[in-house]
Design a protein around this nucleic acid. Structure first.
Lengths: 206, 206
DNA sequence: AGCCGCTTGTGAACGTTGGCACAAAGTCGC
DNA sequence: GCGACTTTGTGCCAACGTTCACAAGCGGCT
């Protein structure tokens, strides 16, 4: 579940704060969810809280990390070094959460060789080799929409089984491949929809 | 619902392709959803398809646009011009979907005055004035996590009622304010979780 | 004009998710 | 050692979202 990742992040902050144990209710508040839901989520991983006390922060972190599979560092490749790809390559949040960027790729000849926070942009020709050599299982697509499907197919052919897609396009893949989509414009439109609802509601009141 | 935005985007491509009408099933395939679900979504907006034929693309686009509230151009402010903020400011997808960036803001004095694709980075001191003058209702937060809540509070105080949060932090807001969260690291961790599951499943088979 | 095939719109069943409430269990104080 | 308090783990129920299946309606063909 998606919430596990949030719990893990919150637990990280708490551990930095020096807290050693935490109750489900406190953690639920910090993560912005119901305490019962949190306990149910955790019970899915097995029961290892102590009644009357709560959960031991370190044990819980390790347990969730194991479940999410971030104990072993996973390698990702990033394809499409445009505006967004540039930002993603420079984003420090990946490395600190157990992900290593194994390679940056772009179809544009002029971008090849460019250095972004210590990583060199490679040609698409090297894609398969890098994926195989570093046993990459996750690919990130930050290309324009019209190139997304082709890039996706190449990634899957090279052995990638999970894809994070930032391009505004619907990807069709085999069902053994997981795809998550992040579309910035769609997010804004959803907010716009809520604004519209609020405005309509206001008008109804008047 | 989130899918409406996807339908709208797909319809845009179809309209460019010169198609004038489309059946629910074809559109559902293009959007990657079940056809019954799509029809139910559309029926929520009223019934205006013609049985035996399908939906008129232009009518449908206009109807969805109205519902999402993107007919009137909405203004957004973007706070935090780091790696990600830079990319968002330069991302062309906003303007083409009916959103106008009313201002870029950053707390770092050194960034103020910087020009990003025609927009100038402003001081946080000007935030309230710009929001009021341009009647901005949507704010985008791309700051580090520890600054997110403070920025959020300032945005809400200035009159913003919808927030898109890229910072890895849980924001607490009044219930009249809508918050959508996009956390890149969490997205990767979810994929990592699926990878973990696949690996475990494989091991179970062996 | 009448029939046939196609597509919409929707009612009903299903599975999933969220939330309450309570019993089990463990700790702290005396 | 024992009782009271705290917190977990979970059974049950309601609400939501999804899917199936089918009747109603529209266009085209004869």
């Amino acid at each position: 579940m998606a919430r596990l990742a949030v719990y893990l992040r919150v637990l990280g902050s708490l551990a930095d704060g020096g807290l050693s144990t935490i109750s489900s209710e406190a953690l639920a508040n910090a993560a912005g969810v119901n305490s019962a839901k949190l306990r149910k989520d955790l019970s899915y991983l097995g029961s290892f809280g102590t009644r009357g006390v709560g959960y031991v922060v370190e044990v819980l972190r390790e347990r969730i990390s194991t479940c999410l599979g971030v104990t072993e560092h996973r390698s990702v490749v990033l394809v499409g070094i445009g505006n967004l790809g540039h930002a993603l390559a420079g984003y420090g949040g990946f490395g600190s959460r157990g992900f290593r960027i194994a390679g940056l790729f772009d179809a544009d000849e002029r971008r090849i060789g460019e250095n972004i926070s210590g990583l060199c942009v490679r040609s698409m020709d090297e894609l398969d080799a890098v994926i195989a050599r570093e046993s990459v299982s996750i690919g990130v697509i930050a290309t324009p929409a019209d190139a997304a499907q082709e890039v996706c197919d190449r990634l899957v052919a090279a052995g990638v089984t999970s894809i994070l897609n930032f391009a505004p396009a619907v990807l069709v893949v085999t069902d053994i491949v997981d795809v998550r989509k992040v579309d910035l414009a769609v997010e804004l439109q959803i907010l716009s929809f809520h604004e519209q609802r609020k405005a309509a509601g206001l008008k109804a009141v008047l």
